[in-house]
């Protein structure tokens, strides 16, 4: 225990006395952690965003008034057999009217006009699909001889264009994000390794002296490893604060532009702050300790 505290103390004072090299290592590590975290956050928020949008997009099939309920139920059954279909909800003419009335409860004139006429709203099937890309099987059923006559229209065509666009956009953002994260991580690793190596090279003489007064390689390594870990801990603290500030100021703008997604960014940050902190701490300490170990290894060997 005495030895551990000795190491800790030695590592801490090394860190303090190393001045600008410590600062350089920390700045680089903070940048790495921020970049990685932001890409992870953006990726995850995008994923939830896409999912929300996908969930919102239904395919609606509107029926002619000539269609009888059993025709519609028949079609519902054959659609339900498809694996592409997640859920189907049958909305009868009466239900559609109820819904419409509820939606327009604040507009009494409109509701007044409805009373005079027959219910003008069509019966419909609201279909949710597992994958908005795979709707060919559904279209086949819609266009089949059996059901085509009953169908007034279906909303798939216009939706598909929107979905396709969204998909292409998110796919691109994800790929670009992944590539950028990978590039940044590798760059940061190389830079931190070199920074610590420089720091250790500058202290080559010190290490030689330590060896000469009888220090074992592991005794020499200890403080350097602690020093690397301290870089990780301090960098994590700074990075989390910077990200929090960033999100705090950015989310109003995001909510303006994207509505829900802006909100979910803040929510995501708050919901996952513990995981985020620990993940960064893990990465930071890992990078710090690993680079220290690699950089010091060569110099502590006794020949």
């Amino acid at each position: 225990m005495s030895n551990f505290f000795r190491l800790l103390k030695s590592g801490l004072s090394n860190f303090r006395r190393n001045g600008w090299l410590s600062l350089a290592s920390i700045i680089i590590m903070v940048l790495t952690l921020i970049t990685m975290s932001l890409f992870v956050i953006v990726n995850l928020v995008l994923n939830t965003g896409i999912k929300t949008i996908q969930d919102k997009i239904d395919i609606s099939v509107y029926f002619n008034d000539t269609a009888k309920q059993n025709n519609i139920i028949d079609m519902q059954d054959s659609l339900a057999e498809l694996t592409e279909v997640k859920s189907i909800n049958y909305v009868s003419k009466a239900e559609a009217l109820e819904k419409y009335k509820k939606q327009n409860a604040s507009n009494p004139k409109l509701l007044e006009s409805l009373k005079d006429t027959d219910n003008p709203l069509p019966a419909s099937l609201e279909i949710k699909v597992t994958n908005p890309d795979q709707t060919d099987a559904l279209v086949k059923i819609f266009d089949s001889e059996e059901y085509k006559p009953y169908i007034r229209e279906y909303s798939l065509k216009e939706n598909k264009v929107i979905i396709d666009k969204l998909f292409k956009a998110t796919q691109f953002i994800k790929q670009a994000g992944f590539v950028a994260t990978a590039v940044f991580t590798v760059t940061a690793l190389v830079i931190i390794f070199n920074t610590i190596k420089m720091a250790i090279f500058a202290r080559k003489e010190e290490i030689d002296i330590m060896k000469l007064v009888g220090a074992t390689p592991s005794f020499i390594k200890g403080p350097f490893i602690i020093e690397g870990a301290i870089y990780g801990i301090i960098s994590t603290a700074i990075s989390v604060i910077v990200i929090a500030i960033f999100i705090y100021f950015l989310s109003p703008a995001l909510i303006n532009y994207f509505g829900g997604i802006g909100n979910s960014l803040t929510d995501f940050f708050l919901d996952n702050i513990v995981i985020l902190v620990f993940a960064q701490l893990f990465m930071g300490i890992l990078i710090g300790v690993l680079s220290s170990l690699l950089a010091v290894r060569k110099y502590v060997k006794i020949s």
């Binding site: 004072s13 090394n14 202290r203 010190e206 030689d208 000469l212 009888g214 074992t216 005794f219 006794i302």
Partner: peptide
């Protein structure tokens, strides 16, 4: 053996010509 060198050096006190003090 190489790994015994540190233990040997602890039994000998050396005053180096250039002192070899740890600057930090």
């Amino acid at each position: 053996k190489k790994r015994d060198i540190p233990y040997l050096r602890r039994k000998i006190g050396v005053v180096f010509q250039d002192y070899k003090l740890l600057p930090k």
